[in-house]
Amino acid sequence: MAALATRRWTSRHPLARDILLACVVVTFGAAGELSGMRGETDGVLTTRDVVALLVALLAVAARRYHPPLNLAATAVASTVLVVATGVEQPVLFVALGIVTFTMALRTDRRSALALAGSLAACLYTVDAFVSTGSPWSPESLGLFAWIGMATAAGDAVRSRRAYIAEVEERARCAERTRDEEAARRVVQERVRIARELHDVVAHHIAVINVQAGAASHVLDRHPEQAGRALAHIRDACETVLGELSSIVGVLRQSDDQDGTEPVRGLARLTDMLDALAAAGLVVEREQIGHARPLPAVVDLAAYRILQEALTNAHRYGTGTARLTITYAVEKITLDIVNFIADGRAPAGSGYGILGMRERAATAGGNLDVRAGPDGRFTVHAELPAPTLKAAL
């Protein structure tokens, strides 16, 4: 946790991170000078060593501010110290590598290669003449390798960051374009559906209005004509209901919410049966097993399945239905059986059956709907219902 907090703090304060890095470089440089570095130094911090450490400290701490200018200044300072003292300062080479990496990271590739190559050539020439007095100095080739490695590393990191940023931007653009296209298509589809709904409903409502007027006009004098008018009204109602069902099916989504209606469950089953009885549906109810509290999702799914199945039984059936609720150890089973009047509701049709299947699937169960040759229509649902443990 502390490491994560430190990383977040340093990412928000890059200057503090650079100063910390500069202190680490200078500390190791000073320790190397004092330790003698295996006999290559005298083990004492001289004036030239202190100056080299200060140059390295300033170069690394300010590496993010004008990196090309910082690199040039660091290279000039290193060159002056080498020419003036005739001694190479390892801490300056480390600082040069860090500053070169930063320059390549924050500069385009062509400029970074040109600047790094020029500085490496100048440093090589000065170091070669100071060390050997000859333009050919194999010992000084390490400068090229060091500067080249730092430049390549910085350019690689810059390229990777640019690639990641481009990929993320493309993903954002693609997502934004996809959302805009989806929204545009939704608007177009809604306009089309609204136009179609208006045409269908307006036409049939006009027909119903005309036929209702005709029926009321001839009801007393010509009852047979009133019957025909009422038949036309019934046909128009069935047609418009069918059209509405098809249009609602286009709009329907599997994640539709139930609105603001209070959550129902099997505890409200008696009220539902009373309402159906008042509407003319006689339901023979049977319960097998002891009723127990059910998970909320299962309880609501069971209620909705029974509601839809019994509504269909009242709408398409002969006026009676048989309901059986079975409480098993780990499940609850619902069986609704009725006889279809004139075969008006074939098995598997309609959005009511689709809704019951979705309800059962949401609760982790399954639903089976069958229509027998004798007109018997059966809805069978099995929902998982593990026994709930009492709260302590």
Score class of each variant (00 low, 15 high):
residue 4 L to W: 02
residue 13 H to A: 06
residue 28 F to V: 14
residue 36 G to T: 02
residue 37 M to W: 14
residue 38 R to Y: 07
residue 40 E to H: 11
residue 56 A to R: 15
residue 82 V to F: 10
residue 82 V to G: 04
residue 91 V to P: 10
residue 95 A to V: 02
residue 104 A to T: 13
residue 107 T to R: 15
residue 109 R to M: 06
residue 112 A to N: 06
residue 118 S to L: 12
residue 122 C to D: 09
residue 128 A to I: 03
residue 129 F to E: 09
residue 142 G to I: 06
residue 143 L to G: 02
residue 146 W to T: 12
residue 150 A to K: 15
residue 153 A to H: 14
residue 155 D to N: 13
residue 160 R to Q: 11
residue 163 Y to C: 10
residue 163 Y to I: 03
residue 171 A to P: 00
residue 173 C to A: 13
residue 175 E to G: 04
residue 175 E to Q: 14
residue 178 R to L: 06
residue 179 D to P: 01
residue 189 E to L: 13
residue 190 R to M: 08
residue 193 I to K: 13
residue 202 A to I: 01
residue 206 A to F: 08
residue 220 D to F: 03
residue 226 A to V: 11
residue 228 R to Q: 13
residue 237 C to K: 10
residue 242 G to E: 07
residue 244 L to N: 06
residue 246 S to P: 00
residue 247 I to C: 02
residue 249 G to F: 05
residue 251 L to R: 15
residue 258 D to G: 04
residue 260 T to Q: 14
residue 263 V to L: 12
residue 273 L to K: 12
residue 276 L to Q: 08
residue 283 V to L: 10
residue 288 I to G: 00
residue 300 L to D: 09
residue 301 A to D: 06
residue 310 L to W: 09
residue 313 A to Y: 04
residue 315 R to P: 02
residue 329 V to T: 14
residue 329 V to K: 14
residue 335 D to G: 05
residue 337 V to R: 15
residue 341 A to W: 08
residue 342 D to A: 08
residue 348 G to A: 10
residue 348 G to D: 07
residue 349 S to Q: 13
residue 350 G to N: 05
residue 351 Y to S: 15
residue 353 I to P: 04
residue 379 V to S: 05
residue 382 E to N: 00
residue 384 P to L: 01
